[in-house]
Design a protein around this nucleic acid. Structure first.
Lengths: 338, 338
DNA sequence: CTGAAAGCGCTAACAA
DNA sequence: TTGTTAGCGCTTTCAG
């Protein structure tokens, strides 16, 4: 292995040409600049011989572009985000972009800090599922010329492009399904304060559907878990709720960690799903097919979300488009045995 | 928002000082260099006023360090890798490092390409769970002075540090448990060609345990699925295997995607777990607690793996240590109802 | 067809 | 206590 990195200069010197020429050839601009085929070959050969590796940092500084996209999610270990990250990575890579991933832990300050870090690192664009309530802080931090596209969570009439799912409609479908199967006492378990758009929309969907079916919405049938509470505490609340509301025959949960708590609680209460309680949850997980019982759930089109997000960002990057785009994708209701 | 990025130079000019001074102050070296407190304050204030953001790319070029770690895994959407990524991110962030994540898709060429990309991007170090058989290609690509630490998968007597789990011992424990519960006809389902170290070790563990118990190892009881085959094809093979080997009372699977295939196959064969077949699998997933039946599995200490990996890498970075470290961590056997 | 020179934004010797 | 200067490695006018 070579002691020092080999640079464009080393190649130039060994060949007695200028580094300009070397740079041109290495960037495939040899023909555009009418450089002698033979010279081109000499350069290419020498580069290979010396095992030359272009320094992207230097290139980035000079060109003002790093071919890097910053990605901020609540938690990369959440399967929902992990799978979307995979597709974002995939589509970004096709265009030569790499991804820096960051988890905000649902913490506003951390998210803002990450935003600043990413910007200092000169990422070309940012993709984020924001944990914040509004854009005021964000707007302060990220300047207008930094492309930013949101997914999963968006803001009311903001100028940032977004890719989301029709959360309201999806929830309505689930409630409709409950009703079609004779359920009237339907519970709803979510997180609060739910300033996060999908949570707001899911609750709205629940209420609209119940009203459409002329079903009474009792506040005791709605459980709002503390957003920042630990899993244990949330679990206790779920268990209490289920114990106190024995008349409920169905319950809708707004995410895949709540539903796990429900299953656990039902187990420990010696009650069975779906005999004693039917469940539909938001977000599908592969293993829901094999849980006891297989869980009915709403699946988001993860692949498509990733693809669209990248595509919108890249467009913004290339064309410098300013007008925000809002993609709203459809979900699938997977009815299984819960 | 400002039209142009504000640089250290802008601050210097506005204040009629040199950019050196500004740089020093901004880097907290004001006192070391005995710069007037008042001047320092003026610089800091002006920086805030102009909303100055240090350009990490320029800094990186100058300092020869990017505070970036490259991470290569087979697939970031695999919960095993996703969770480790989370902890790697966590510990790296504490030291000011960010992570570029890349999925190799179990493809050697792609992995090598990613390696080159990461090196060109001047990452300070690389963490990887390699898909390759040996280090020959890797050694060609990554120079000696690029810190590289492996996790999950390692190479025989290589010079790269690694963090793994005692796969052989873990498998032995599982087989012991089967035997203690009266099983004698024990099957083993894995992937082939299994040039990947954990797979090799798991198989060795199986064989050693069987021999220790004086149990016969019949080749028809071992199924090796095509490593690169699609899930569907693997599923068919599993189903055939289970159908043909009705005398098996227990089976060990070497990863969490195989075990899902097993459950599905057992379902479709109208056979039940664990009545007709007991299962223990490598790698634990949260939902295994709720599958039907709850699956017994071997859990790796994900948090610790991530922590150790980062810690070894950072050490190598700081001290320029050359001697490779090999951490081997312990697993936990979670006996549930399968 | 090829090269000289400038400069991206920052840091670090070395002067003053 | 502060400033000058020289680059990190690369691309890009502009001149030959």
């Amino acid at each position: 292995m070579n002691k020092k990195r080999v640079t464009i200069n080393d190649i130039a010197k060994e060949l007695n040409v200028s580094k300009t020429l070397v740079s041109m050839v290495l960037n495939g601009k040899g023909n555009d600049n009418a450089i002698n085929k033979k010279t081109q070959k000499r350069v290419l050969d020498k580069a290979k011989e010396l095992n030359y590796k272009p320094n992207q940092v230097a290139r980035g500084l000079r060109m003002g572009t790093t071919k890097t996209i910053g990605l901020i999610v609540a938690d990369i270990s959440n399967p929902f985000f992990a799978r979307i990250t995979r597709t974002i990575e995939h589509y970004a890579e096709k265009e030569g972009y790499n991804i820096i991933v960051c988890s905000s832990d649902e913490n506003d300050d951390k998210e803002n800090h990450l935003l600043r870090t990413l910007i200092n690192r000169q990422v070309d664009g940012i993709i984020m599922s924001s944990t914040q309530q509004d854009t005021s802080k964000i707007e302060q931090i990220v300047s207008e010329r930094m492309p930013l596209v949101l997914f999963d969570r968006k803001f009311e009439n903001s100028n940032y492009s977004s890719v989301t799912v029709d959360n309201c409609e999806a929830t309505r479908q689930a409630i409709d399904h409950f009703v079609a199967n004779g359920h009237e006492n339907i519970g709803f378990i979510t997180l609060a304060p739910s300033h996060i758009s999908p949570l707001i929309d899911r609750k709205r969907g629940f209420i609209e559907a119940m009203e459409a079916h002329k079903l009474k919405i009792e506040s005791k049938n709605i459980l709002e878990l503390g957003f920042y509470d630990l899993k244990d505490k949330q679990y206790d609340q779920i268990k209490d709720f289920l114990e106190q509301n024995k008349d409920l025959t169905a319950v809708f949960t707004t995410n895949n960690s709540i539903v796990v708590g429900c299953m656990e609680a039902m187990n420990s209460l010696k009650r069975s799903i779906p005999k004693d309680l039917s469940i539909i949850t938001f977000d599908d997980v592969e293993l829901f097919k094999y849980t006891n019982p297989p869980l009915s759930s709403i699946a988001q089109p993860l692949e498509e979300i990733g693809e669209q997000t990248v595509s919108i960002l890249l467009n913004q990057l290339k064309n410098g488009t300013k007008t925000p785009k809002h993609a709203i994708l459809n979900t699938t209701l997977n009815i299984r045995q819960s």
